[in-house]
Simulated assay, not measured.
Amino acid sequence: MPVPKNDFKAAISAGRQQIGLWLNTGEALPAEIAASAGFDWLVIDSEHGPNDLRSIIAQLRALAPFAVEPVVRPPSGETWFIKQLLDAGARTLLIPMVDSPEQAKALVQAVRYPPRGTRGLGAAVARASGFNAISDYAQTADDEICLLVQAETRVAIDNIEAIAAIDGVDGVFIGPADLSADLGCLGRIEAPEVQGVIESAIGRIIAAGKPAGILTFNETLNRRYLELGANFVAVGADVTELAATLKNLAGRYGRGPGAGPAGSGY
């Protein structure tokens, strides 16, 4: 029995737009709520979210019944952690701060079994193979692993075609926050000089034959990127949406940050 098909990987390869959301609570229950909302992909964030291997596994379990692709972002592209994530059942990885084709090539090696790569054999005792229920996991896993790499610096943008050209890189994701900082516009991703670089990079990624992705919390920008052809776009994060909604609710009753105690409640 082969591993299940990765519909997200097939969708972005075919040019079908996929709308995503960041998960930053580190908890399974909010992840399950987000999965029921109808997004195509959800990022379990271990770079800027309070996640370790066990909390990632808990969220993978929570998302498993839903028609949504869990995308796991580790803090960095360390081979040992990539191996653990894959064995834990993650099959789509988003690796931050990839500046060069050499880095991208090493990451491709890390997610593939020999002779195509260097991934260690151990999934027979791990969640990825259903604890060996998928008897030919090692023979079929490579084709369903989806490797997304983040371009977040001027160096990465300069190397964007070479990064996209690496066989086994399934998509290139622009990190606008870090990129804006590296361009001298810290906290101002809407700055024209930043947007010019981003829009050019999206076009260059697509021209190189790879899917382009991005995340912002700005709906106008997100829709613009979709118009430009970016086809895996994350449009928000669970914590920011929850915070905004709760502040709005409290404000409708004269409460909110700095409004004083809420009274006796119920």
Rank of each mutant, 00 (worst) to 15 (best):
V3M: 14
S13F: 03
I19Q: 04
L21A: 06
N24M: 06
T25I: 04
A31L: 07
A31D: 06
A34I: 09
W41G: 02
V43A: 12
D45A: 13
D45W: 10
H48D: 15
N51E: 15
Q59R: 10
P65C: 13
V68N: 02
T79K: 12
T79A: 13
W80T: 12
Q84G: 05
D87N: 13
G89C: 08
L93V: 12
P96F: 04
V98N: 01
D99T: 02
S100I: 07
P101I: 11
P101R: 14
E102H: 09
E102G: 10
A104N: 12
Q109V: 00
A110Q: 06
R112F: 12
Y113W: 08
P115E: 05
G117E: 03
R119K: 06
R127W: 05
A128G: 10
F131K: 00
A133F: 10
A133C: 05
A133P: 00
I134Q: 05
S135E: 13
S135H: 12
Q139A: 13
V149F: 01
V149E: 01
A151I: 01
A156Y: 04
I163L: 04
A164M: 10
A165Q: 05
G168L: 08
G168T: 08
V169G: 03
D170T: 04
D170R: 03
G171R: 08
P176W: 01
D178S: 04
S180F: 09
C185A: 14
G187S: 08
I198T: 07
G213Y: 09
G213T: 08
G213F: 05
L215M: 15
N218C: 03
E219T: 14
T220S: 15
T220E: 15
L228H: 07
V233L: 11
A234R: 11
V235H: 01
A237W: 02
V239L: 13
T240P: 03
E241D: 01
A244H: 11
T245N: 06
L249G: 03
L249T: 10
R252W: 07
A259H: 11
A259Q: 14
G265W: 02
Y266I: 08
